[in-house]
């Protein structure tokens, strides 16, 4: 089940790691390196899933989440945070903000795609990460 996945990430290396892994498993990826751009891609492409970093230049990942989740047309697209904010309580804060999933960096390359796929088709699921 190939999916169309948008990755919003300002760190070029992280972005490449994720797109490389996702494409290797047959998914189509779109990329954006800040929030505004990401939102444009969402409305143009209507991806099946969005991966979003939290610390982005300009608009933060949380602001992206607020916009998406407040838009009835887009709120059903699964939104997964992949972030280096991995202190105790960060996961809870992220899920509370409306993200459907939370994956901390560094990611585990062998399990990453499976983890991401598990959010497709589910509205809310915070059990992975």
């Amino acid at each position: 089940m190939a999916a169309r996945i948008l990755v919003i990430e300002d760190n070029a290396e992280s972005l490449e790691v994720m797109t490389c892994l996702l494409e290797a498993f047959g998914h189509t990826t779109f990329t954006a390196c800040d929030g505004e751009q990401g939102l444009k891609v969402v409305s143009l492409q209507r991806p099946d899933l969005i991966i979003c970093d939290l610390q982005l230049p300009g608009m933060s990942g949380f602001a992206v989440c607020r916009q998406l989740k407040n838009d009835p047309l887009l709120s059903s697209i699964p939104l997964v945070a992949v972030t280096a904010q991995a202190m105790v309580g960060d996961r809870e804060r992220v899920l509370e903000a409306g993200f459907n999933g939370y994956i901390s960096k560094p990611i585990a390359p062998r399990g990453f795609v499976e983890q991401v796929e598990s959010y497709i088709g589910h509205d809310k699921d915070g059990a992975h990460g």
Partner: peptide
């Protein structure tokens, strides 16, 4: 929190690419 964030970001690239290479991707 900053240290944690700043250390994890490059680590993500190291672990990510190493994994990609080892997975023969």
């Amino acid at each position: 929190a900053t240290i944690s964030h700043e250390l994890r970001t490059p680590l993500n690239a190291i672990i990510g690419f190493t994994g990609i290479l080892l997975m023969r991707l």
